[in-house]
């Protein structure tokens, strides 16, 4: 859709799993997209790379809320990351990238700023 020409279409609603995450490949590398139907907004996107292990796994973490903040827990070492800000609740100096996400019809679009685009996607 032309209205969103720097919004990358990554998948469709059918690919999403309610209350959980999936991973997509974008120009900025691997991104985790979470769909929390009982939340407003319902769609969140953060980097898929777990900063503590370097592994691409965050989409496979358990989602939920801590003191009202929507979070995902890393499946490896269980730190919680805010889905809104990307800040790690256990260590605020650690933060993962956050990407604006929206639903365009049945398409999921992410805004991947040029500065974050990777040129070397292995």
């Amino acid at each position: 859709m032309t209205a969103h020409n720097n919004w990358e279409a990554v998948c469709t609603v059918d690919d999403l799993v309610p209350e959980s995450g999936i991973a997509v490949w974008t120009e900025a590398g691997p991104v985790a997209v979470f769909y929390l139907p009982h939340h407003l907004p319902a769609l969140f996107a953060i980097s898929h790379t777990d900063p503590f292990s370097g592994a691409n796994v965050l989409a496979r973490g358990i989602t939920g809320d801590l003191k009202g903040e929507p979070v995902v827990a890393s499946p490896l070492y269980k730190q919680h990351f805010s889905l809104r800000t990307g800040i790690c609740m256990e260590d605020e100096s650690v933060r993962v990238k956050v990407y604006p996400a929206l639903l365009d019809g049945d398409r999921v679009r992410l805004k991947v700023p040029a500065s974050q685009r990777r040129t070397t996607a292995a």
């Binding site: 309610p18 370097g54 592994a55 796994v57 973490g61 358990i62 499946p75």
Partner: peptide, 22 residues
């Protein structure tokens, strides 16, 4: 079953044990 998927730890969701590199 769809309702239970998001409740599980990754090991249960994918029925395998996650290793340090994912």
């Amino acid at each position: 079953a769809t309702d239970h998927v998001p409740l599980q730890d990754t090991n249960d969701t994918f029925m395998a044990n996650m290793q340090k590199n994912g």
